[in-house]
């Protein structure tokens, strides 16, 4: 199996993702330049964090015009695993892979800190090594992580298990105080209906080995390997 990490001008977490995947999974991983028109040979594609195209116009707005996105869309339609982290999540919503949108943090400040996530759906290719309700300790670093979707969309994604991670306190409660950015329902990460595309604002690529402060992030990458092995 082969992992791909997309390289878009302005994104800087590509090397973190590459290193995380290499260290955690030991599987082959390659960079994918955003002007490539083919993603043949890859089984999982990561859209890393950063500021793609300088966040011009809106965060993640212009990346959908990068030539590689057409191939990634076809890849996702065929069931390939696509994982957007932070800016990658913003790109996935702007490009229509995932519902809703990420807006400016409600406090109008960039927030950078460790926090707790609760696993709401442990049956996705990204969470199959986790248990329902399991807490993860993962850092965030973003100014535009405020997840919004209209009422009908919100009800739908809550109802059919598309909400994968929620911001919670250390006791696992999704309180307003545990919400760093104003996201509706404390939503931190969601999948598409098919379940093969995940977007999350927190950074497992910054929390995959203990020396970083938490190794909980590695569980997500390990789940992906698990899913690909059993495919």
């Amino acid at each position: 199996m082969k992992f791909g990490v997309v390289v878009i001008p302005g994104c800087y977490c590509d090397h973190d993702c590459y290193y995380a995947i290499e260290k955690v999974t030991g599987k082959p991983v390659e960079f994918i330049w955003h002007e490539q028109t083919s993603v043949d040979g890859f089984d999982a594609i990561i859209l890393p964090g950063g500021f793609a195209h300088g966040d011009y116009l809106r965060t993640g707005a212009l990346a959908k015009f990068s030539p590689v996105m057409k191939a990634i869309r076809a890849f996702a339609n065929m069931g390939g695993l696509v994982f957007g982290i932070c800016n990658g999540f913003q790109i996935l919503t702007e490009a229509g892979f995932l519902p809703g949108a990420l807006m400016r943090n409600v406090g109008m400040k960039y927030v950078c800190k460790y926090l707790h996530l609760r696993t709401e759906n442990a049956e996705t290719p990204f969470t199959n090594t986790l248990s329902q309700g399991q807490l993860l300790y993962i850092p965030i670093g973003h100014g535009d992580g405020n997840y919004y979707a209209d009422d009908e969309t919100l009800m739908r994604i809550e109802g059919n298990g598309q909400v994968v991670f929620r911001y919670v306190d250390a006791q696992g409660q999704a309180t307003p105080e545990a919400n760093p950015n104003g996201s509706l329902n404390n939503i931190a990460g969601i999948v598409n209906e098919q379940g093969n595309v995940l977007g999350m604002m927190p950074h497992p690529d910054r929390s995959f080995e203990a020396i970083l402060g938490s190794a909980d992030g590695k569980l997500i990458f390990e789940s992906m390997v698990n899913a690909l092995v059993t495919k």
Partner: peptide, 8 residues
């Protein structure tokens, strides 16, 4: 398709 995000 470019200048606005119809979701918001």
């Amino acid at each position: 398709e470019v200048l606005t995000n119809p979701v918001i």
